[in-house]
Amino acid sequence: MSQKVLVLNQDYSALTICSMPKAFLLVYLNKAELIAESTSEKLHSIHQTFPYPSVIRLNRYVYFPYKGVVLSRQNIFKRDGNQCQYCGSGDHLTLDHVIPKSRQGRTSWDNLITACKYCNSKKGHMTPEEAGMRLLRQPFKPSFVMFLRNFSGILNQQWLPFVGSKTEPIY
């Protein structure tokens, strides 16, 4: 029962991902409707069988003023695939400011990357160009839907009509 469920707002926009028990409860209490269900699993009680939710839609619109991805260490690691953006290593990971803080580099999505301890100390207080190091990928701020789709670690095929495929751009 560790499967996750995509929750859509009343206007069918992706809102969040929740646990299956919470999604089932929302549907059972008529606070949400079932949009897509698992074809391979069912929920059973003593007397009834219920569909196993995969996508649900809330019956009331939920105003969600900030629909962005929180800047955190774990989210930077997810965005960068848990690998150093200089050498590709997955060991001893830290965060690195592309433009060092000592040179007024900001703590932002566009300036933070995942780096291993070796590359981070080799770069030191220099820019990657000054240190003779190349970035594997430029840092960027992911959109909320992009983060749900690409970096949450969960992508159910039934979610694709609502969050798009990994190759589709997000506007």
Rank of each mutant, 00 (worst) to 15 (best):
L6I: 06
F64L: 09
V27D: 02
L71C: 04
K166G: 13
S121Q: 14
K67W: 03
L43F: 07
I76F: 05
L160D: 00
I46S: 11
K123S: 01
S165M: 11
L155S: 12
E41Y: 14
V145D: 00
K141Q: 15
L58E: 02
L160A: 10
D91R: 13
R60F: 10
L43T: 03
A23E: 04
E41S: 13
V27F: 07
I170P: 03
E130I: 04
K123V: 01
N9V: 05
G68V: 08
Y61F: 14
H125V: 11
S54Q: 13
Q83P: 01
G68D: 10
P142D: 06
N75R: 14
K4V: 09
L8A: 03
G88Y: 11
S54T: 15
I99N: 10
P65C: 11
L26A: 10
N156H: 15
F144M: 13
M126C: 13
A14C: 09
P142E: 05
F140L: 01
R106P: 00
P65I: 10
S38G: 13
C116Q: 03
S40T: 15
S143Q: 07
N150V: 08
W109I: 00
H47G: 12
L135M: 05
L25A: 15
K101D: 04
S89L: 02
V27S: 05
L135C: 06
V7R: 05
S121I: 13
Y61K: 13
T167E: 15
L136E: 00
G164P: 04
A131P: 01
Y63V: 15
K117C: 05
V145S: 01
P51M: 04
K67A: 07
Q158M: 10
N75F: 07
T94Y: 04
G132Y: 12
V5C: 08
V70W: 02
M20F: 08
A14E: 06
H44F: 15
G153Y: 06
H47K: 14
Q74E: 11
H92C: 14
F151V: 02
V27N: 02
I154S: 09
G88L: 12
Y28A: 11
E33R: 10
Y66L: 12
T127G: 02
T94V: 05
R79H: 04
Y63I: 14
I35Y: 01
T127E: 02
Y63C: 07
L155W: 04
Y86G: 07
M20A: 12
S2H: 08
Q83N: 06
N30Y: 09
P53C: 12
K123T: 01
F147R: 11
N59S: 08
Q3T: 14
Q85C: 06
Q10V: 07
P53Q: 09
D110L: 11
S38V: 11
K166Q: 12
V7M: 06
F50Y: 15
S40R: 15
G90E: 12
K31W: 02
V55G: 08
I76P: 03
A36R: 15
L95D: 06
L136Y: 00
L155C: 14
T94Q: 10
Q48V: 01
R137D: 00
W109E: 00
L93F: 10
Y63P: 06
K117E: 11
R57W: 06
T127P: 01
H44I: 13
K22C: 09
R57H: 07
N111C: 03
I35H: 01
E130M: 08
E41G: 02
Q3E: 14
G153P: 05
I99A: 07
S165L: 09
K123C: 00
V55L: 12
